Simulated assay, not measured.
Amino acid sequence: MSIVNEFKAFAVKGNVVDMAVGIIIGAAFGKIVSSFVGDVIMPPLGLLIGGVDFSDLGVTLRAAQGDAPAVVLAYGKFIQTVIDFLIVAFAIFMGVKAINRLKREEAKAPTVNKQEVLLSEIRDLLKEQNKPAAPVNVDPNKPF
């Protein structure tokens, strides 16, 4: 098999396509979470701790000299990235938890096999046929 055919077979497999869709949706979800953290969560949090904007937090290790930019340890951006991660991880956890709950409920539901139902019906019919006949009470004084 040539490399082109082998790559084509690999690229169109369902798992690869599903993975690509997941990555694209994940990237879009990451942007939404970053916006949520940066625009919704961080401003009130910064206000609570005295008007601090986390993205501006940092320590200047060396001031800018001429054309060389300043060397800054930007721990505020790191804090924001950690909060982004925690929100994404929590959202994924809740999604996986919901999927697991659905799988457990699906596993609890008894599966009825058509063959088992048919065999049960045959068994019941055989039991009916093998029952002893009810004794016939004949009254010798009554004519037929």
Rank of each mutant, 00 (worst) to 15 (best):
N100Q: 12
K127F: 12
P135Q: 01
M42H: 05
M42F: 04
D84G: 06
F85S: 09
P44H: 03
F90G: 12
D67P: 07
A63E: 14
N113E: 06
L102N: 07
L118W: 09
G50N: 03
F78W: 15
G66W: 02
D53A: 09
K77H: 07
F54T: 00
V52K: 02
K131G: 01
N130F: 14
A64R: 05
A109S: 09
F78G: 07
G51D: 01
L45K: 07
K108C: 06
L73M: 13
P132V: 00
L47R: 11
T81Y: 09
I79G: 01
P43S: 03
G66A: 08
P140W: 04
G46N: 02
Q65F: 08
K114R: 06
S55Y: 13
Q129S: 09
G76K: 01
K97W: 10
L118Y: 12
M42D: 05
I41G: 02
E121S: 10
V138D: 05
V96K: 15
R104F: 06
V72A: 01
I49F: 15
V37K: 01
I79C: 04
T111H: 15
N100G: 07
M94Q: 15
V40L: 08
V72K: 01
I49S: 04
P43C: 03
A74P: 15
V71A: 03
L86Q: 11
N137Q: 13
L119R: 11
A89Y: 14
V96P: 14
E116Y: 10
D39I: 02
L125I: 07
L102G: 08
I99T: 10
K108F: 09
D84I: 08
P43F: 02
V112C: 06
E105I: 14
F54L: 13
V112F: 11
P43I: 03
G38C: 03
R101F: 05
L126F: 13
K103S: 07
D56M: 13
A74E: 14
Q115H: 07
Q80K: 08
N130M: 12
V59D: 03
P135A: 04
G38A: 09
L47K: 12
A70Y: 00
L102I: 14
R62I: 07
P43Q: 02
A91K: 03
V96A: 12
E128R: 15
A89L: 15
F54G: 01
F78M: 14
Q115S: 09
K103L: 14
V71S: 01
A109D: 08
L118S: 13
E121T: 07
E116G: 04
I92P: 03
V138S: 05
V136C: 02
E106V: 04
I99Y: 09
N137L: 06
I49K: 05
F78H: 10
T60Q: 13
V138N: 06
K127W: 12
I79Q: 01
K127S: 08
I41W: 04
I87Q: 00
A91T: 03
G66C: 05
A74D: 15
G95D: 06
G38E: 14
A63P: 05
K77M: 11
L48H: 04
D56R: 11
K108T: 06
L73H: 05
M94K: 15
L126Q: 09
